[in-house]
Design a protein around this nucleic acid. Structure first.
Lengths: 152, 152
DNA sequence: TTATTACTTTGTAATCTTTATAAACAGTGT
DNA sequence: ACACTGTTTATAAAGATTACAAAGTAATAA
């Protein structure tokens, strides 16, 4: 494992903080902690997940702070909001482009890299007359673990 | 325009009612009206849209009835629930497979036919070990009208 | 036909997520 | 120290959806 790989999440956090500085967004302890949690989290947490995860470190933090700062992060492009069928939004620290594969049984979300579907966007533009900016795609199924359990 | 095309939505409704009969779901006046509205609606209405659209015909219908029956329709596969970023779900009568192109300015949703992305599903299955069942994709941009307005 | 049963609708309350608001707080520059 | 601006907190409010109990309606069996 390379040196850069070991320090990957550290660097990602550092880059994110730099972005905030350059954008003129203050780096408060709460913002630092939320960002850190997002970078290190391999899951795709909801606002409430983040709130609960940080209540040890910030017993007085308000849920509104979590929502406010997730909005700030989204606006400067550090974070993507994922809206699936379930009740609450999930938040994904933006690294490289990727899609998500979602287990319909246990809800697990796995990152999935695939070349951008430029052709789809081009055809959509041609057929609909839209100026296309981006697309989203999720792939649904059942993960290996849940498949095993089904067979028991 | 062909004879079949003229009667398309009529046939779709008939087929949907047949599906309900075969599944043993009672066809109540409310269910009939909700289905009819979904089939004929070119938009992708929210539960509240449906509720409002039918309150002339059913002044006493409860909003719970709309939700209940949309769930029933979803369970028998007649309707798809679309969860975008906005607050409420939209409901789409299931016909042929298609994707949606969404205007980020005015919210308009346009159907978009494209061959299924089987290759993506196959690669996802291979890489993640999931058993894939389906995928969803939305394409975002601005529609021709909104582009014009921007230039005024 | 009547009685029984199961399903459906209605009306309302409750829940849950997210946003709005106002007051307290903190950092920065003069 | 003072004023200014942005941030957090606490709480209320909004909006979508679900839960629940009572009343209504259709299907079935006796």
């Amino acid at each position: 494992m390379s040196h850069t790989h070991v320090h990957e999440s550290h660097d990602q956090l550092k880059d994110a903080l730099d972005t905030l500085k350059q954008t003129g967004v203050r780096i408060t302890p709460q913002r630092h902690a939320i960002l850190e949690f997002l970078v290190e989290s391999m899951t795709h947490p909801t606002a409430d997940d983040i709130y609960k995860a940080l209540e040890g470190k910030f017993p007085n933090m308000s849920v509104a702070t979590v929502y406010n700062n997730l909005r700030v992060f989204r606006e400067v492009g550090l974070v993507k909001e994922l809206t699936y069928g379930d009740t609450s939004s999930r938040f994904d620290f933006v690294t490289t482009e990727h899609y998500h594969v979602i287990c319909e049984t246990c809800g697990k979300i796995v990152d999935f890299h695939y070349p951008g579907l430029d052709e789809v966007e081009q055809l959509a533009a041609h057929v609909t007359g839209f100026k296309i900016s981006h697309h989203r795609m999720e792939i649904y199924g059942t993960c290996a673990e849940c498949n095993h359990k089904d067979l028991h």
